[in-house]
Amino acid sequence: MGNSAFLVGGVLPYLAAVVFVVGVVYRLLTWRRVPQPASMTLYPTQGASWGALVKEALFFPSLFRGDKTLWIFAWSFHVALALAFIGHLRVATGVIDRGLAAVGLGAAGMAMLSAVAGGFAGVVLIATVLLLLGRRMLVARVREISKTPDFLALLLLVAVITTGDLMRFGASHVDLAATRAWAASLLTLSPAVSLPPTFLLHLFFAQLLVLYIAFSKLMHFGGFFFTFSLIKGSQP
């Protein structure tokens, strides 16, 4: 295997994992450590329940109330992202396949499910991320508030999704047996990287994105739970 392939598939995964975990934990602990001297109630002031938290996390009702167009873009994007995330577990492990087989899904059915769900997510992701990018570039008001970090996050996503879609819809479909062998080799700390270039490119961008999370606004996935309980919940 080439040196660059080994760097992307055999070294960077460890680095990305460490930076991600340490970075995110550090950010979360910082938020946890800082005291909250007052109760910061905001309507509804009775204090939000766990149900409301789950609802907010799954359906973004606050955004829905405020900006329906943005809600469609943002919500579809996040749902497709979640779908893609679940699908990607199959790249590393056969657990999902075995589970699906246990409930009677054959290889053909599985391929069909993968093509439909994965294809759907792949199309929605690239469409919504381009819409979000277009919104930042074309709507004057939003362009005014957008800074380099906002574009950087979106451009990284475009790169990750485009290379992913190339494998999904292009000629070089991914060989799950090969990727699972690679994932297993990573786990045993003896990385063996024998993967096609498109996959490595996709992996490269994905890892850049993962590295970037802890240092960026992408931390909103963690901050959300804090702000929600602080602002919409009732007690400090």
């Binding site: 800082v34 001297p37 910061m40 008001r141 606004k217 931390m219 602080l230």
Partner: peptide
């Protein structure tokens, strides 16, 4: 102030 810290960090500038 935890709220302040979060509000510094969490905004995604969605507008």
């Amino acid at each position: 102030s935890r709220t302040l810290r979060l509000m510094m960090d969490t905004c995604v500038r969605c507008g």
